[in-house]
Design a protein around this nucleic acid. Structure first.
Lengths: 184, 184
DNA sequence: AATCACATATATCATATTGATATATTCATC
DNA sequence: GATGAATATATCAATATGATATATGTGATT
């Protein structure tokens, strides 16, 4: 629940495009990036408070007739700066979730430099290809080491899912690189 | 940390093929299914104890010269029965992780019926196609609702990753169905 | 007019998970 | 003989999850 938490950047990024309440944020992020980034109320509300306390976001209470108050959060200049720093920070190729990290950054691509975005997608592509190779090698090793193991065919099937996913990711990187070129 | 925990079935499944210590299990599962199923010592050791207490696994302490004792876990008949029950239990199409669930079941495919395996992969394929359609529809909706929003191109890119992943999953299901036919 | 389901809105909490670390020994390598 | 990796279990603070409580408005159905 610190400021460096990646989910807090997801929130900061969303606030950069539109002031929101916690409820808004959760709904928006769930809908747009829910397929690769999970978000829950248990994260959103505490993180918004942390963000506000660190002066990366400002709060305004909107009293409504009858209803409970709505807290509208806006990103501050310091928050925008923090967001940009994160978007331009180097990727960690050791991260087991580099794909999700790059996708999250791309979602907020409006706030990053075009050449940085491209470089990060290229890095992700290399990472994906490396993974595909690793999974292919693991499959070969399985065949040799468990030649007569009755589990082998099933283990090969799940190994193939890793290869397939990695190749699909590399392909998506290619498409994305083309799409990004069209934006420059 | 209950018996119904899916990770406990992953452990049970691994034990079905070979008696193991917690250390063995973690290393094995991490290597073989780590790309879609995370496992940590914080899960393995407590779950093994739960499994043993529920009589789904038996423990034998192997004292070693100098070294700390090694606890060797074996699956019991009740454990095998529990594993099979899980492997043949109906899939929840609402699950956000149906892909990982089916892959885990397939990894332990040696212990399930061929026609059940096939049916579950077919269900996963239908689920993946549904997801692909949903993401495609979401992309179209984005284009209409945020026509002049400067975020649009980036939001479309991340939406496309959902479609791409879902299509790749459906393709993998097809390959897997073919592979499974070869086993019958 | 009543009822039902759903959307709005914030907040909390028990439970589960993560990721790192402590401990202690053997083995291979430099 | 020193360094690092592998073996092996265990724990724990920090986080995240998923469900639920609370309270009201809105729109649809009966």
């Amino acid at each position: 629940m610190q400021t460096k938490n990646t989910t807090s950047f997801a929130i900061l990024g969303a606030l950069a495009s539109r002031a929101s309440s916690g409820y808004d944020l959760k709904k928006f992020l769930e809908q747009q990036i829910g397929h690769f980034w999970k978000i829950s109320y248990g994260q959103v509300y505490p993180l918004l408070k942390v963000l506000a306390q660190a002066n990366l976001a400002s709060v305004k209470e909107q009293t409504q007739k009858g209803r409970p108050p709505r807290y509208l959060y806006k990103i501050t200049p310091a928050g925008k700066s923090e967001l940009r720093n994160w978007l331009h920070s180097p990727l960690d190729p050791e991260s087991p979730n580099l794909d999700r990290e790059v996708m999250l950054r791309l979602f907020f691509g409006r706030f990053s430099e075009a050449n940085m975005r491209t470089r990060q997608v290229e890095q992700l592509k290399a990472w994906a290809q490396g993974r595909a190779d690793q999974h292919a090698a693991a499959g070969k090793a399985l065949k040799q080491q468990h030649e007569s193991n009755p589990d082998l065919p099933f283990w090969l099937i799940t190994a193939s899912s890793g290869t397939a996913a990695a190749i699909a990711l590399a392909d998506w990187c290619d498409q994305t690189l083309t799409a990004l070129k069209g934006l420059k």
